[in-house]
Amino acid sequence: MNIFRLAGDMTHLLSILVLLLKIYATKSCSGVSRKTQELYAIVFLARYLDLFTDFISVYNTFMKIVFIASSLAIVWCIRVHPMVKRSYDKDLDTFRHYLLVAASFLLALFLHEKFTFLEIFWAFSIYLEAVAILPQLVLLQRSGNVDNLTGQYVFFLGAYRGLYILNWIYRYLTEPRFTRWIACVSGVVQTALYADFFYYYFISWKNNSKLKLPA
C-alpha cells in the first residue's frame, strides 16, 4: 500500500460521506443521479464477490463492506425514504443506464483475465465503474446549477480516480512485473470522463463563484 492508493481510497470514502451528508442534512437528493448510485451498488456487489474467497487484509475486507453497505444505503434512501424520495426528479435522470450494464457485461465476457465466474464479474465491475458516473454528469449538465455538496461529491470521486493512476505509476516503477491492463486502461478512461467537470470546477473555484456547467 502506497500513499497514493491510501489517499485515493480516502477520497473515495470522503466522496461517499459527502453524499450521505448531503442527503441526511437536506433530506433531499436533488441533483443526485439515482442511476449512477445504482450502478455503483452493482459495481461493488459484482467486484467484491471475492469477499469470502480471497483475504487480502483487514483493511481491504473492512473497506469492501463499507463500500457495499454505503452504496446500498444511498440507493435505499433515494428509492424508499419518504422525504428523500420526493425530491428525486426522474425527468432529469433519463440516462439509459441498463445499456451500460449490458455493454459492460458483454465486454467482460470477451475481455477478462480468466474465464471464471469471479473473474468475469470482476472485469464487468471494472468496466461498469468506468462509465457509471455518466448518468450523474449528464444530470448535472442538464440541470446547469450544481449545489456545493453535489459538486464536492463529484470532485472527490474524480480525485480518487486521479490518485489511483498515480498509484499505478508508483507500483509500475517499484514492483517487478506490475501489469494490469484491464484495470489501468479502464481507470484512465474513467478519469478522462471527469476532465470536463474538473475544468469548470476549477474555474468556479478560481473565480470564487458557484459551479455552473454549460448547457
Binding site: 467486484r47 480471497d54 481491504n60 469492501k64 463500500f67
Partner: peptide, 10 residues
Amino acid sequence: VVERKIHDEL
C-alpha cells in the same frame, strides 16, 4: 511458476 493473480485493490 504461474502466480495466482489476486485483486488487491478496491
